[in-house]
Simulated scan of single mutants.
Amino acid sequence: MTARSPATFLLCHGAWSGGWSWKKMHPLMAKAGHRLVAPTYTGLGERSHLAGPAIDLETHIQDILNVIRFEDLGDVVLLGHSYGGMVATGVADRARDRITQMIYLDAFVPRDGQSLFDLNEPGREPMRGAAASGDGWRIPPNPPPPDTPQADLEWLNARRIDMPIKCFETRLRLAHGEPAMPRSYIYCTRIPPGDVFGQFARRTKNEAGWRHFELDASHAPNVTAPEALMKVLERIVAQPSPSSHLVQ
């Protein structure tokens, strides 16, 4: 399906990653007539020289707010992937007038006062232990999905950066409650053991105000299934305001 008008997608990327990991999506977005703005958070990717123990979720929310401000972005489709769902939710709370809709891609969907560790209890102690075994504040990357092609695996592993633990410990504070704009959730159905995102798939299937989509891909479709991901994104922006409880 072709969107009725060009969209500006603003990415909030996942943990250990960066805007660079969405490289395959740029030509697909351009071909569809859309724009993908893919910044990298402080302390990761090309900004890894800024890494430090004080970086937290609030730092990354401010990173994206500053992109909106200095790039003068409006009518934004805010796209949060994985950890980026934490960031996107905070951004939407503070820049509501700039955002037309939100898309969560296999992402955390926090409520007010929740941290990522609150939403991923099984991962809390292992990640804290991994940080403690080093310098106390860095969490090494989780492995990429097992179906990642070898060339992509090498490309990812050469670029992924340890995450500051405070990013996962910070409790999100929302001044305005649940985001008021249209929201869609894309659930990747090639589920790994201990799937943490199933809770959000169930929630968005049953909670008013959501569109729910399922994608036959593993957790990083921007790398392993970019064409399939682009098709779903096009469907969403072509019909941004459907009835609630829509499962596709």
Rank of each mutant, 00 (worst) to 15 (best):
K205Q: 15
H34S: 04
Y83D: 02
F70A: 06
S115L: 02
S5W: 09
P179I: 05
G33W: 14
M230H: 08
L44E: 08
G33A: 10
L79N: 13
P27W: 00
A151P: 12
I103K: 02
P126T: 05
L78P: 00
N120T: 12
I64Y: 03
P6A: 08
S21R: 09
L57T: 02
W210K: 04
T189F: 13
Q239A: 15
S184W: 02
P6L: 12
A228I: 03
I55F: 00
W22K: 12
L172Q: 01
T224F: 04
G80F: 00
R173D: 11
I165Y: 03
L65I: 01
F200Q: 06
D106F: 11
T59E: 02
F117K: 00
L174F: 07
P146K: 00
R4L: 13
I64W: 03
A3Y: 05
G84P: 04
H13G: 08
P179N: 00
D112K: 03
H212A: 10
L153T: 07
L28P: 00
L73D: 06
K24H: 15
V37D: 05
Q101R: 13
G177V: 13
P39Y: 05
H245M: 12
S21F: 06
A132C: 06
E178Y: 01
D97M: 11
H49E: 15
Q114W: 08
R202I: 07
L172T: 10
T2A: 14
D216P: 09
H13N: 12
P110Q: 06
L215M: 04
L156G: 06
G74R: 05
L246Y: 13
A220E: 11
F108S: 03
N157L: 15
A180P: 02
K23I: 09
N157I: 10
E121S: 13
A220H: 11
R183G: 07
T204P: 00
T40Y: 07
R69C: 03
E58C: 04
E207I: 01
I191G: 02
P221S: 07
L116I: 11
S82L: 05
L65A: 06
G90N: 10
A132Y: 06
F197H: 14
V247C: 15
S133W: 05
A180Q: 12
P27T: 03
A220Q: 09
R98A: 15
E178H: 01
K231L: 11
R94Y: 07
N206D: 05
Y187E: 14
E227Y: 11
R183C: 09
G43H: 03
A228T: 01
E125K: 12
R138Q: 13
S17W: 10
G14I: 12
G84I: 04
V109C: 05
P192Q: 13
P193Y: 08
W210N: 07
K31S: 13
L44I: 06
E71H: 14
D106C: 14
D63K: 01
F213R: 10
T100F: 01
F200T: 04
P144F: 09
S115W: 02
Q239S: 15
E154H: 08
G129T: 00
D93R: 14
T40A: 02
A3M: 10
